[in-house]
Design a binder for these strands. Structure first.
Lengths: 182, 182
DNA sequence: TCAACCTGTTTGGGTAGCCAAACTTGCTAG
DNA sequence: CTAGCAAGTTTGGCTACCCAAACAGGTTGA
């Protein structure tokens, strides 16, 4: 059971991910981004941002012009865009397919956006696209509506009896399959 | 845009989550769990485990009998079980609904299991249960099969042109909706 | 002109985790 | 009986983040 520590050995950390996407956001929104702007937007001190960005500059992801205005390198843009798209896709999945309240969906997406693999994010995108283009219309729509109705408000106790039993079933089935392929 | 730091302000950290679920696993599997066993299973040193478990003992999640055999308190069991179930549900979602290769699905689930909200996990469980019990049969099945075919192997470049355009559409739509409710 | 202000950087302090290495304990094989 | 080994703990070091506070530079209003 090694491999669980791949957690923090990602392309970028949670912190770095937010620094990058924030710079991109500020550029799109206001046309410029400075250390203070990033700090304000992230709710941390200028000092912290200064130190973090020094690292990201050394890694060649963030650049700075003569007026201390920040920018992203091609690689930086690529990473920031990837993370941002993952966030959108996950949030949409949680909210529109699973029926989660928007705020919770956004928070969950924000927490995991930089952790999910490209493969998974891509599959989420394709699923959403299929649903969008009506390739899974009536029954899917109906199912989603039902899900939405059920998930009214907040779950009081996780896992519920039913879900727990179901998860145990899934686990058992998985164990059996592992036995097959071995 | 504060709130992005809820990341590490969860009930338990990624590390703690794995310590707890490992103890539970060892108890189920072998009937006992010691510091060394946990260390071996997690692939880290006894020293690290010792220190971490001291904290978890102080928080009342882990207990220890006179023979240095580890156990979980009621609260510890509750947390470990919750995380474990989230992992199963997410892994199943990624693998069986999104068509992700099992190993990747497991890794992704492992990375985010302790981060997703109870609400989201619960909704995933209900969705899977609906699919399971045939409440979204033909078209869903067909869609899943198609997804599986498409996602042959690993995504070379994320995001693809198509997914990126789609994500932009989703984002734009979302922005408009925010305008409505404001 | 120059004090006040805003911006950015540096530094010392704190937490969380990891490792390596030294130490303590207790059991067990000669 | 004791030497040796395995298990657990402690300690010093490292990285990654955060903050607060001190400091350095540029702009600007009076």
């Amino acid at each position: 059971m090694t491999g669980w520590r791949e957690f923090d050995q990602n392309l970028v950390s949670h912190s770095a991910a937010h620094h990058l996407t924030t710079i991109q956001f500020l550029l799109d929104e206001f046309g410029y981004a400075r250390v203070s702007d990033v700090a304000r937007h992230l709710g941390i001190t200028r000092g912290s941002v200064s130190v973090t960005l020094k690292g990201l500059r050394q890694r060649g992801l963030v650049i700075e012009d003569e007026h201390k205005h920040l920018g992203l390198s091609d690689e930086g843009v690529r990473i920031a865009r990837g993370i941002h798209i993952k966030r959108i896709l996950l949030q949409t999945l949680f909210r529109d397919v699973l029926g989660i309240e928007d705020e919770v969906a956004e928070q969950d997406a924000c927490k995991v956006e930089h952790l999910v693999s490209d493969d998974t994010a891509d599959a989420v995108g394709r699923l959403l696209h299929k649903i969008e283009t009506g390739k899974a219309p009536q029954q899917m729509q109906k199912m989603m509506k039902e899900l939405e109705k059920e998930s009214s408000g907040t779950v009081s106790d996780f896992p519920s009896e039913k879900i727990q039993k179901f998860a145990e079933l899934l686990e058992q089935r998985q164990t059996e399959n592992e036995g097959d392929t071995k």
